[in-house]
Design a protein around this nucleic acid. Structure first.
Length: 330
DNA sequence: ATAGTCTTCCGCCAAG
DNA sequence: CGCTTGGCGGAAGACT
């Protein structure tokens, strides 16, 4: 049976979830293919060391043993993933980068997990591409490589044949997306179910979703309200109405909300609406009017102004630039 | 594009 | 007394 060779490169010290998560996803995909009686090529998934030494220290303190050193890999590779962690951020050997560069035209798709993006960038594979990495490192990546278009928002993005994912556990989402690309959503969903994961996170593609901000509130009423807001974006979310809901005076409500959530009520509502609007634009074919209505904007004009303020582009520009699903009409 | 609302947000301060 | 609450006013800026 033909195989798709998937190489996961670990750079010690490696972030352990970056290594194990994708390994689990691809190997589980093989099991699901078997249980479906599929004759599609299986993944030959392998952990490879970016050094000569096979022992990989993880940041959590245990060790993983790679099956080979990168220098022993000379057969064709379908998917090459660079896992992240302190090692990836610190940089790899020039020899490894040379090896990586030499594969730029033969590997079907490159991927990075977390700070693995720095390694791809070091190898010059991200020039001019739109990429992401762990939210804490987006600024650093952008500063080190001004010619890379770093987007701190999504949990993963692809640009041509380069796939980059956000921090730590986002590598699992990226791997699932690759499985879906290869074998369709039925197989990907089976993998997600088996591993007890979301095929698509309820918060969409955002790295830091606004409901998570609201969950930080210690005052239960405000925490509940923050969640309620994200579920009722079409409702009356003016300050006096919100204050009424929690039985506070307007003045005290704005004061407490800002203290507990870290955003003023108005900012929070705006963020929540924008997040939903972005997701709708990225993943559906709904018209701008429909998106505006769904998200609680009075008109497409209001939606447009909100986008210009926060994203710097109009909703339709945003949609054409950031559409998520491969193969969608453009 | 402009003008006239409407809304938000925050400092101030008196009252619990 | 220290701390929280809530009414008021007005500047900024968003909406129609």
């Amino acid at each position: 049976m033909r195989v798709k060779r998937v190489i996961i490169v670990a750079v010690p010290p490696a972030q352990e979830l970056n290594v194990v998560g994708p390994l689990s996803v691809f190997s589980t995909a093989n099991e699901m293919l078997t249980s479906f009686g599929s004759d599609a090529p299986r993944y030959d998934v392998e952990l490879v060391s970016a050094n000569m030494e096979l022992k990989i220290n993880s940041q959590a303190g245990f060790s993983i043993v790679a099956s080979r050193s990168y220098s022993d890999v000379d057969e064709p590779v379908d998917t090459l993933l660079i896992s992240g962690g302190e090692g990836a951020y610190a940089g790899t050997s020039p020899d490894f980068l040379t090896w990586l560069k030499a594969r730029r035209h033969t590997v079907r798709r490159f991927g990075s997990l977390c700070t693995g993006a720095f390694v791809l960038a070091d190898a010059g594979l991200l020039k001019g591409s739109r990429v992401t990495t762990h939210w804490q490192f987006c600024a650093a990546l952008s500063k080190r490589y001004p010619d890379i278009d770093v987007d701190a928002d999504p949990i993963w993005v692809y640009d041509k044949n380069v796939y980059t994912s956000a921090g730590i556990s986002a590598g699992v989402d990226l791997s699932l997306a690759m499985v879906e690309e290869d074998h369709g959503s039925k197989v990907a969903l089976a993998v997600a179910r088996y591993l007890v994961l979301f095929l698509r996170r309820p918060s969409g593609q955002a790295q830091l979703s606004i409901p998570m901000t609201g969950q930080a509130a210690e005052v239960i009423e405000l925490r509940d309200l923050a969640v309620w807001i994200t579920n009722n974006l079409r409702g009356d979310l003016r300050v006096d109405a919100l204050a009424d809901r929690v039985g506070m005076s307007e003045r005290n409500f704005t004061r407490m909300f800002a203290r507990e959530v870290g955003l003023s009520p108005g900012q929070y509502v705006e963020q929540a609406r924008l997040e939903l609007a972005k997701r709708e634009l990225q993943t559906t074919a709904a018209s701008i009017d429909e998106v505006a209505d769904l998200c609680g904007y009075g008109s497409r004009e209001v939606l447009r102004r909100a986008f210009m303020r926060h994203a710097g582009v109009s909703p339709s520009q945003y949609r054409s630039r950031f559409r998520v699903r491969p193969g969608s009409d453009d």
